[in-house]
Amino acid sequence: MKRLAVPLTAALAAIGMTVSLWLIFVNAPLQWGKNSNDTLNMSSLFFNQKIFYFHVAHAFMLFASVFVAGTCSIAFLKTRNARWDDIACAAVNVAVLFGAVVLVTGSIWAKPAWGTWWNWEPRLTMSLLLWLILVGYTLVRQFAGASADRVAAGMAIFGMVGVPFIYKMVGSDSHPASGANGVVATLGPGMKGAFWLSVVSFMCWFIALVVFRVQSIRAARELRELREAALDAGVLE
């Protein structure tokens, strides 16, 4: 089962992404706006709206990883079992990449929607702040020497507890994806399926990457231990 985790989730992601690409670009309708007299016009987003399917899917994973890292870090500090720390670290590593995608696609959305590449729109700001915490975590892991795992775990936990405050801080918003009137709730019939399939596909992709990363972190550690054992036994120079 463990061996199959990466290929399985990666395969699911590949199939899901292919289908959702077709759904997004061929099946789903373009974004039309409505004039005051209820006739359709070409909204400012139109074709650009397509990036939404990727943006939101990545954002979900960014948020999820903050909680994964936080929870695993609590487990690590309480049990001091490095396996938990590996998961937290892997989730953050992958989420830093996903977060970068969120910020770039967010900018691409912002340009046609609001005429500027970056406008401190609340949900995008929140993504940026969470991403900064995760980048900080990565830096700590890299440069805090022997204490890196503890310090980074602390940062992940404090970051997780800070999420509701960041959420409150950015306030009510104009983001297309939020609220009952937001884009997710009002997605057209051809859009909804594409959207959720895309979310699930990217989730599979995220899980595949995280599991793969955990495995590589563990392999690196085992290799180092083997090397040490070999040094002690005098097999290696």
Binding site: A82, A146, S147, A148, D149, A220, R221, R224, E225, E228
Partner: peptide, 8 residues
Amino acid sequence: KRYGSERA
């Protein structure tokens, strides 16, 4: 005792 992947 191990520190990260170092064994002390």
